[in-house]
């Protein structure tokens, strides 16, 4: 019987240092193509250390590689910062729900990310750009705590240089050599130009950020059923058996992490649910 608890070894092909505490690892899946949908996640196992849920940050059209962007903050993820090409990780997945790439067709798409929340949204951005004709305006709003904590900086520059999408980047705290905007993503959202009646908003970041993003989007006239958010909960299994990620009737690993806002608005308002 296929054992859903046992990871499959995969070899690291490339390591890119994003920030002081974040790396992007590209795993080689050419021997066994890895299919996923933007927004989904894997359980990533480091030998001898343990396993953590990590969203997939690569291109869904490239089944020969699997890309994870990992912030090293705990006993499992911190040693992952030191991996080099040729090292091996264990993978279980993909798990969970996906961003609404179909539902968003024909609409303006507003992507609002905070911190590491840009990683699970990057496959969505890749999809939008790869299928550019299917969508109207595309706006990416990205907030980082500080300039040196920004992910995918080269890519952000490249995207910003394109004429077919708008990129707004902001930081909570500026530094001496930062001349860009300082402030929260909701301010950038309020200033963004898009057709609120016919827009799709996708957001991922700290819960408090998403709460204000949704509040602002709704104020601007975006219908609640056109807003999607990605939830984070403690997860040990990702297959609905360990119980940790329960949120009301849901297992976030199965019914989430990506939710349509009108389905969760009432739950999101409850503290400590």
């Amino acid at each position: 019987m296929n054992d859903p608890w046992v990871p499959t070894p995969m070899t690291v092909r490339e390591v890119v240092r994003e920030t002081a505490d974040t790396v992007t690892l590209t795993l080689d899946t050419s021997a066994s193509p890895f299919a996923f949908a933007p927004g989904q996640f894997n359980m990533v196992y480091l030998f001898g250390q343990g396993e953590v849920p990590i969203s997939i940050s690569g291109h869904a059209d490239r089944p020969d590689e699997l890309v994870h962007t990992i912030r090293g903050v705990g006993p499992v993820t911190r040693p992952m910062l030191d991996l080099v090409p040729g090292d091996v990780l264990g993978i279980r997945g993909p798990f969970g729900t996906a961003w609404p790439v179909e539902e968003a067709r024909g609409t303006d798409v507003i992507v609002v990310a905070g911190g590491i929340g840009l990683a699970p949204l990057r496959p969505m951005i890749y999809h939008l750009l790869a299928n550019r004709r299917d969508y109207a305006r595309i706006v990416l709003i990205y907030g980082a705590r500080q300039p040196d904590q920004m992910l995918f900086v080269d890519e952000l520059h490249h995207w910003r240089g394109r004429f077919d999408l708008t990129v707004e980047v902001t930081v909570d705290q500026g530094t001496e050599d930062w001349f860009g905007p300082v402030g929260v993503v909701t301010r950038s959202l309020a200033r963004a130009r898009f057709d609120a009646d016919d827009a799709t908003v996708v957001t991922c970041g700290p819960e408090v950020m998403m709460r204000f993003v949704v509040h602002e989007a709704v104020r601007m006239g975006v219908p609640q059923d056109r807003i999607w958010a990605s939830m984070e909960r403690n997860m040990k299994c990702a297959i609905g058996l360990c119980g940790h990620c329960q949120w009301g009737p849901d297992f976030v690993c199965k019914q989430g992490p990506v939710y349509r806002w009108d389905h969760i608005a009432h739950r999101f308002a409850e503290k400590e649910l």
Binding site: D3, W5, V6, P7, P9, T11, F47, G48, G86, D87, V88, G90
Partner: peptide, 15 residues
């Protein structure tokens, strides 16, 4: 759930 042993570059899993 499983036992893993180190191999040259990776690990082998035993159920």
């Amino acid at each position: 759930l499983f036992r893993a042993t180190r191999t040259e570059r990776g690990f082998a899993v035993e159920k």
